[in-house]
Design a binder for these strands. Structure first.
Length: 788
DNA sequence: ATATATCATGTTTTT
DNA sequence: CATGATATAT
């Protein structure tokens, strides 16, 4: 078996830790201790390419690190090397990651190499955490106070809604969600309101897109708040308008490192480039084949263009894979080879593994059977002594998870779901936090509005609207408006008393702020506000869980100094403590799996429309398809030893059964390394036993199946649509099936693969209601029936 | 103001 | 199907 050499934590270097006493110059001390021509022991563990990536310290470096080639090891060792050779102190290295988890891991591993001096790495963190740090220092240059609030997606959407309404627009026609994603997209690309391309700005709200964006920004300033995008945008703005500030950071950051560079967006790129213009000691590590966040603004171009942006950059390829068996690497490479526009890497392994398993491809009648079969496979592996911790099911979309959970619950098979709603995104947690936010920051209108009538206290829509009007007219925060309105007769008596009570409570809580510990106060607030009572009275199934979460929240607060520091922290670090717990199979999305590895990987749902996802192909055409393929590549390369790819011949989509077509990605796996499981399978690969369910053509001829052609047609249509401007006279064209010709008349006889023959009784767009001779009345998509 | 009915909607997700 | 958001009735 091939074990990743970077899979386990690196041992601390003996003889190194003792010499590296804590302190600002620990690196220097260590360097001296290591000096005199003594080899640096940490370098011995590296292969030649890795070593080059570590030792090429000065100037721009692009490290193209394929999956499982020791990317993290290179990054951490490089930092250790810089510290150990005394080139920089811990505080002079900028190291950026995308997730808090990655940052945490990196810090831990550096500690393992250089000892406690890693703690001094104040600038190791996510783009957003570092952006926040910079922005807090120079808040006034952005019209903010340094105690600004960071809004999350939920707050942002509510703010958008308020602005849409304030502008007198119909919030039905122009959904806040859409405005939010537009603004988000613009910020991802580093665009300020006046820089938004006209065409795009026009597409929203009758051409007022950019105005709304501007209004949104102004509103943020009034609230003394920023959104995630601002955490990058504002530092860029400060750097550009204050060269002295920029220069001080350029000087400070003697070495810069970026992880997962293929995931950077334009704003992050601009931010980095400004900082790197100083000494150009920028090292980026990434894998263009693992870029799967394009839909969120990541620009693969950033990595593809690095050499042009930083002339003279050293390019180092890490292709030696320590993770997977030959067949797995061959399959992954073959599949990704179908993409164009790659920098091109070929993974290889030096290990001869004669008994390496081929990939298994299998089919199920429907998704239920797929879950059942995978459950059986897992149990069988378990009987052979394999650990559940080393097995993962990687799905394309989270709705696929449920079927597995259901099945595993009945089997009593322990599983762990990664992803899903995070702890701090849950309703009860956000409500509780809103209370705390109002206490700490009375001007936090969004928080105040969230809980003004939660629990129900007779302050309804009308009252809130009055509050808003007053606040806007007088240019004061909602809370202030509330205070003033309780002095007048404008509100209904009942509402007025309720509001008065609430305000009085807040006054009381605020005065307790320094008398009590923040955890005590939190308990009092949740109690006195009636919030816990609300859930205790709630008879629904999830109420007890919510109460439990609230307790957990208070427990978590204990780790922080004060209420304010707690709030500061959670807006950036929104990840749940992952319960290590006991042995369990992991279920997660392919996206969430990036960076992880398992002995056994199950990849269910390889069907056209689901994977590649229809929407990715429709909305982004060829680029979308290639990103889906990279996702498949990520999935395959998570496995160390064995992979089971599955597809279901029938799948329930939005409640109705649809027959499916196997994913084109299946055809892109190399036959020599794939074993098609015939037993009990559907799909008749290789012309095997024809059954009455047989509609899936053999591998080689999938391209001629009606389904594949349909997919191609859809793709062509989709690509066309997305190339054309999305607007006609400033109006967004509905993305739906406007171009759909009603191909079926009422009374037409049709045939459906699952339900057999029937008569069309109603047509509604592309949805048909069909009375089937055997199966009764069903609603089906027209693309799944044929005229007879 | 709030409880209930009806309706549209439906990837991937960090910060 | 299942959820959330909005219209309607109480």
């Amino acid at each position: 078996m091939i074990r990743s050499t970077d899979g386990s934590a690196m041992p601390a270097i003996t003889g190194f830790e003792e010499t590296s006493a804590p302190g600002p110059r620990a690196g220097g001390i260590a360097a001296r201790a290591l000096g005199g021509g003594r080899p640096s022991p940490y370098l011995d563990k590296l292969n030649p390419e890795q070593r080059r990536a570590v030792e090429t310290v000065d100037g721009p470096v692009l490290v193209l690190a394929g999956a499982g080639t020791g990317k993290t090891r290179v990054l951490t060792t490089r930092i250790a090397h810089i510290l150990a050779t005394g080139r920089a102190r811990p505080g002079e290295i900028l190291a950026v990651t995308f997730t808090n988890k990655a940052a945490r891991e990196m810090k831990e591993r550096i500690s393992g190499l250089v000892g406690p001096s890693a703690e001094g790495m104040a600038w190791l963190g996510t783009f957003h955490a570092i952006g926040t740090r910079i922005l807090r220092r120079h808040a006034e240059l952005s019209g903010l106070r340094s105690d600004f609030t960071i809004l999350d997606a939920d707050d942002q959407i509510r703010l958008c809604k308020q602005i849409i309404q304030a502008e007198g627009l119909d919030d039905k026609r122009w959904p806040a969600r859409q405005m939010h994603s537009l603004i988000d997209g613009w910020k991802n690309r580093g665009l300020t309101p006046d820089a938004v391309p006209l065409g795009e700005a026009r597409a929203f709200a009758n051409g007022r897109g950019a105005d709304l964006y501007k209004a949104y920004q102004e509103r943020l300033r009034v609230l003394n708040a920023v959104d995630f995008g601002d955490l990058l945008m504002e530092p860029i703005h400060i750097f550009r308008s204050h060269p002295d500030v920029l220069a001080s950071y350029q000087e400070r950051f003697r070495y810069m490192l970026v992880d997962e560079y293929q995931d950077t967006n334009v704003a992050q790129y601009l931010w980095l480039r400004l900082l790197a213009q100083g000494n150009r000691n920028l090292c980026v590590v990434g894998d263009d084949d693992q870029s799967i966040y394009g839909w969120r603004g990541a620009e693969v171009d950033n990595i593809l263009r690095f050499e042009q942006d930083f002339p003279g950059a050293a390019v180092i390829r890490l292709e030696r894979n320590y993770r997977s068996t030959g067949p797995i690497l061959a399959a992954a490479s073959h599949l990704i080879g179908h993409n164009e526009g790659r920098l091109g890497k070929t993974l290889f392994t030096e290990h001869e593994d004669h008994d390496a398993e081929k990939l298994t491809v299998a089919s199920a009648w429907d998704s239920e059977e797929e879950a059942r079969a995978i459950g059986e496979e897992i149990e069988s592996l378990q009987r052979k002594g394999k650990s559940l911790d080393e097995m993962a099911i990687l799905v394309r979309a989270s709705f696929q998870m449920r079927e597995f959970e259901d099945r595993f619950v009945t089997l009593g098979l322990p599983y762990r779901v990664i992803g899903g709603p995070r702890f701090y995104e849950r309703r009860e947690i956000r409500d509780a936090l809103a209370y705390f936010r109002v206490i700490v920051q009375p001007a936090d209108d969004l928080a105040f509005e969230r809980i003004i009538n939660t629990p129900k206290r007779a302050i309804g829509e009308v009252a809130v609207k009055t509050l808003h009007d007053t606040a806007r007219a007088r240019q004061i925060p909602l809370f202030q408006a509330a205070i003033e309105l309780t002095q007048t007769e404008e509100l209904k008596p009942k509402t007025r008393t309720a509001l008065k009570d609430l305000l009085a409570s807040f006054g009381r809580w605020r005065s307790e702020l320094d008398r009590l510990t923040h955890t005590e106060l939190a308990e009092i607030v949740l109690d006195e506000s009636g919030y816990t009572e609300m859930w205790r009275m709630d008879r629904s199934a999830d109420a007890p869980g919510r109460l439990e979460n609230l307790k957990e929240l208070v427990r978590a607060m204990d780790d922080f100094e004060s209420m304010a520091s707690f709030l500061e922290h959670i807006s950036l670090v929104m990840d749940t403590e992952n319960d290590a717990g006991s042995e369990a199979v992991t279920i997660m999305t392919l996206h969430a799996a990036k960076g992880l590895e398992f002995d056994t990987v199950f990849l269910p749902g390889w069907e056209e429309g689901l994977f590649p996802h229809q929407r990715a192909v429709d909305e982004s055409g060829q680029a979308g398809l290639e990103e889906e393929r990279r996702l498949a590549y990520v999935g395959l390369t998570r496995a160390r030893q064995r992979i089971f790819v599955w597809f279901a011949v029938n799948r329930r989509v939005h409640g109705m059964w649809q027959s499916t077509v196997p994913s084109r990605f299946l055809d892109e796996l190399p036959e020599a390394h794939v074993e098609v499981r015939e037993q009990g399978g559907y799909g008749g690969y290789g012309g095997y036993g024809e059954s009455r369910f047989d509609r899936v053509e053999p591998f080689s001829s999938t391209y001629s199946t009606p389904g594949w052609e349909r997919a191609q047609r859809r793709k062509a249509g989709g690509a066309q649509r997305s190339r054309e401007p999305m607007t006609i006279e400033g109006e967004l064209v509905a993305k739906s099936v406007a171009d759909h010709e009603p191909a079926f008349a009422i009374g037409a006889r049709v045939f459906h693969q699952k339900f057999g023959n029937g008569t069309v009784s109603a047509v509604e767009g592309n949805k048909l209601t069909v009375d089937f001779d055997k199966a009764g009345r069903k609603r089906v998509l027209d693309s799944f029936v044929q005229k007879t």
